[in-house]
Design a protein around this nucleic acid. Structure first.
Lengths: 346, 346
DNA sequence: ACCCCCTCGTGGAACGTTATACGAACCCTG
DNA sequence: CAGGGTTCGTATAACGTTCCACGAGGGGGT
């Protein structure tokens, strides 16, 4: 009945004794393996509930799986990651697996490496890495030992599965929208490239390239301008300051992440520029911040929850050995227009 | 050298063989236990680095500690929790402990109970529970087996340590500020009380009581109004709608959480009310949302990072057996005034 | 020279689970 | 009713670590 407060833990042996069977039998019931009669299953199960038995995950980890899945993310503050997590959690909710999050606090390579190893050391059964900053070769090595799904990066590998967004299409939506409103001088805020990460196709690379292409497609290649001040509030602020105090300030800014867009708001406020009157602003990811009434930011929706759910599903397929070939799942983004974009000089 | 990709893991036995000593000796070095000569330590350590040895956490978990600390939180979306986590992480950063987050997605009692048990099953060495929704008796039972720190609730216990904020003082700051601006009709948005949780002193209870007291102190007891629509964007929206469309709409709203305040913004926008012109608004927790330029919300700062750091410190003290008496740490809040509050009818 | 104690290292028994190998029934078929 | 297969249950050896108990060697003190 009671899960044994501070005293001894109820083990498989206790259950076996109480049910009058061997520990192997209990183990079989636990894993619902072959060769257990309905009668025995019944007895064992009632013994388990009566004693309040819970399997000892560490002991399981020594022999097989731990029924634990780890998610690595750079910052718990990025609301988009929360969307992803929600999806992952939803898919895992009624499985036996528990979900634990490792947050590196920063996107420092070293911290993330430590965290991933911590997960591997704890024998986690599967890993979901959200836009990892660790070198690609390291991820490949890890993935050789533990089923792994990478979210965000477009570099596929036979070692892990990928869940990505068709970032190119998302960027087209934004630029087409802004050009359609009459903007020509549209700048882009991007994220600096990390040296030595070996990832050639991080989301920001895709977005950046797509931005240049879209501008060129509209005959605006000369007006394309990219500032690599980073996906953060502070980065958005600095980038916007640089752009808006330049000789030819843009009439619209496309930020590669909503969180950077919030920094643009701050810069605009300081410079006395109204949004969208004096400056149109678009973000990316359609996080919950974008939807806030005082913010009302036009943004590209990536269906984070769906991506998370997909990632979890792919992982389960691997864990249950229903698939042994790596796949890439790409989803289609769509644009959510709000009050931060308007015709120039409106 | 290489951490063994998919093949065999390097174990303590391999290290022992390579160093020409017994496994017990290696174990001693690992735990830096008594009785190892500098010479042996040197040999073992170089063998470990050469082989790329990493201790198997699950195996450790069977005998002793797992060097894992779990944090339970209701929602990863609450930015205040991110502040707390940052503090916890900072304190644990250069210890041997790894930090994993369990997010229940909702504040459902059942989900949280499952998560806490998942942590205990995995033999985590210590638990930090942020405003847990599980019954108090359950937490006491858990805490009897695993060192535990509870953040938020003001109900102390000999079983666990508490880290709280002096919520009463925080509320006084808000109400004094609003009254000082000339407001009299100040309403409060609170969180509904969960039945059967056994926690008598959840933060929202403290805040609510302090609100009533502060109003009474200013002779405004008759004007005190509380709506229990919940600490969420939607809850804030519904509560504000109810208040603002009533016969006597308040001139100021004090939301018990910033996240609820964002919902008030939405309601005000829909009703064509300007903030702070037609309505003053104050939040609680001073999360990063409050600081966003377009939001600029007056809020009470709780020094989340500091609280998190304190919690981690208390836990380490317990883990290292430097203390065996439960303590309560309370910190002092302060008010951050921004653009969302102004004299009524300004 | 004897004894005692301290230091450093080893042996080996746990810890709770899984999974393989095996044995004892039982059922069917000829 | 012998032979063969299926079904159900058990015995037992891992898995990688910790830590207690023990012993060998060496350095004083008497």
């Amino acid at each position: 009945m009671q899960p044994a407060g501070g005293s001894k833990r109820v083990t498989i042996t206790d259950v076996a004794r109480s049910a009058g069977v061997s520990t192997s039998a209990v183990s079989k019931v636990l894993r619902n393996a072959y060769g257990v009669s309905p009668a025995m299953r019944e007895r064992v199960q009632s013994a388990m509930t009566e004693l309040g038995y819970r399997p000892h995950a560490a002991a399981r980890g020594m022999r097989g799986r731990t029924y634990t899945i780890g998610v690595l993310l750079a910052s718990i503050r990025n609301a988009f990651y929360a969307d992803l997590l929600e999806g992952v959690d939803a898919r895992l909710r009624d499985t036996e697996y528990a979900l634990f999050i490792g947050s590196s606090g920063s996107s420092e390579m070293e911290d993330q490496t430590k965290l991933i190893h911590a997960m591997v050391d704890r024998q986690m059964d599967g890993l979901i890495l959200i836009a990892p900053a660790v070198p690609r070769s390291e991820v490949v090595r890890i993935a050789a030992g533990v089923p792994t799904v990478v979210i965000g990066h477009h570099d596929p590998s036979p070692a892990y599965d990928c869940v990505v967004n068709q970032d190119g299409a998302g960027v087209d939506l934004v630029i087409d929208h802004l050009v359609g409103l009459g903007h020509r001088d549209i700048a882009h805020l991007s994220h600096p490239t990390v040296r030595g990460s070996q990832w050639k196709q991080r989301p920001e690379h895709h977005v950046r390239a797509a931005y240049r292409e879209a501008m060129a497609r509209h005959g605006l290649a000369d007006l394309a301008r990219v500032v690599h001040s980073g996906y953060s509030d502070e980065g958005g602020y600095r980038g916007a300051m640089e752009l808006l105090t330049s000789a030819h300030p843009p009439t619209a800014i496309f930020a590669g992440a909503d969180v950077a867009a919030t920094g643009v708001f701050r810069a605009a406020a300081e410079l006395g520029l109204r949004i969208p009157g004096d400056l149109s602003l678009a973000g990316y990811n359609n996080t919950s911040v974008a939807a806030l009434a005082p913010v009302s930011l036009t943004s590209v929706d990536q269906a984070g929850a769906m991506m998370g759910e997909t990632a979890a599903r792919l992982l389960l397929e691997r864990l249950e050995k229903r698939r042994d070939r790596a796949v890439v799942m790409a989803s289609t983004p769509h644009l959510v227009t709000r009050d931060s974009t308007a015709p120039p000089g409106a």
